[in-house]
Nucleic acid binder design. Structure first.
Lengths: 236, 236
DNA sequence: CAATCTAAGTGTATTTTTTACACTTAGTGT
DNA sequence: ACACTAAGTGTAAAAAATACACTTAGATTG
């Protein structure tokens, strides 16, 4: 059955990946942006790291590859969170000179599968230049106007990060391998957007038994050094 | 800059929508399946309702349209939850005779954006036949082998439904407009997979103040009739 | 080397939330 | 009137969440 109308000339869409990479510098939550120096425009144009999905690539593979190519980041937490498909969100892929690959229908719409990622900032210094342009860390509350619908993508990524943070224990992906309880508390406060009581916070962490105290204390501070901890379950 | 290699002949992928429609009959959680009678195969082949996204369609619009076309369902809760893009999950769209529309590259891979939906079963009696074939409600714990990776899609939809259920108040989308506390409790028990204490459950619901008691009692039962309620916020 | 500064570290009492648990009641059917 | 079925209801105990202030270890300064 089925009136299988083959619509001649209806192009398949381009499919891309965009990554919202979060970092935490112990003060602010940051997001990784790429500065595009294309089309000779005067003002810097910022965008999320992203590119088209290749022909025989799984989406997660693709996200991993693209992030590596554009930012040199590897082996980090990557979570698909939403696909954006407004028909007008991007038109005409070939105008985007920084893209690595063009496809058969460069003028077709672009549907993008968005991922968010969590990075230990101590492990990553943005390359001065990547294939795509300059890579920078930007405070999430000071993100400039980005290309396409990338501001919206960042905002929705943030929402999802908050939600996931509350019921999964995903925060350690943003901290150094060794960290203090104050750093952990600060991270919670910033992601949840609330202040926490020091004693109650420590009580709760202790009961949850996810941390292991190290034989080591903080160094390089001009006050009482804090105990360092690491997460139990992972040897990351 | 940018080594914009136009890869000749790299086809854009097909993009489709698949919908996992949940219903609740006061006993079991159900999922809506379409029986495909194609290729003259002997055994019924079941699949999720789905089709290709049209050229100028937003993804949510597309899901709404496809669901209407294939199942006649309208105005229901629809939530995008994940995009599936294993390069081998579907090959060669033109083999799927029930699809409504073919695209420029029917042999290219198919990436599918999956939605889940919640339906008040009292409002919906599956059509004996739709464009696509017979539509049936199936218990989620008795889903047969489905086409492609649709079993996986159903499983992940269920996981997401459970997660969403716990922190959003989304359950009423599955209940009739008027319902009893026992029905609500049963729904919670089935979705969460645990048993609940009647008194404690009622206490918690009462405190949350989301229900309004109606001037009406259950009828047609051979025992003490229960008070009926509806949800406060919506006039659905 | 005494005084000062900074953030680390620690306990208790109160309130709120969660859990466990059993009998009475309103209506239907015989 | 008796039996059957699911509806409806309260209290006590345990666990979790909150509010709250002083002491301590090390670095810096005069």
């Amino acid at each position: 059955m089925a009136n299988s109308a083959h619509i001649e000339g209806t192009p398949n869409p381009n499919v891309s990946i965009d990554c919202v990479v979060f970092g935490f510098d112990n003060e602010k939550l940051k997001v990784l942006l790429i500065e595009q120096k294309n089309k000779g425009s005067i003002n810097a144009q910022f965008a999320l790291p992203g590119d088209l999905v290749l022909e025989d690539e799984d989406l997660h593979q693709s996200a991993t590859r693209i992030l590596k190519e554009l930012t040199d980041l590897e082996g980090i937490y990557l979570k698909q969170f939403k696909t954006f498909g407004d028909p007008n969100r991007v038109r005409d892929v070939k105008d985007q000179e920084w893209l690595r690959t063009f496809r058969e229908d460069p003028e077709a719409r672009v549907i993008t599968v968005a991922y968010y990622s969590l990075v230990k900032m101590e492990d990553y210094i943005p390359q001065a230049a990547s294939l795509a342009g300059k890579v920078i860390w930007q405070n999430v509350d000071e993100v400039p106007q980005l290309a396409f619908d990338h501001n919206q993508i960042v905002n929705e990524a943030l929402e999802r990060l908050r939600e996931e943070f509350e019921y999964k224990n995903v925060g350690y992906e943003l901290l150094p391998k060794k960290f203090t309880l104050s750093m952990l508390q600060k991270l919670h406060e910033i992601i949840l957007g609330i202040e926490l009581d020091k004693r109650n916070f420590r009580k709760k962490i202790k009961k949850s038994e996810v941390l292991i105290p190290l034989e080591e204390k903080q160094s390089g501070v001009d006050h009482k050094p804090a105990q360092l901890f690491r997460y139990k379950s992972s040897s990351r």
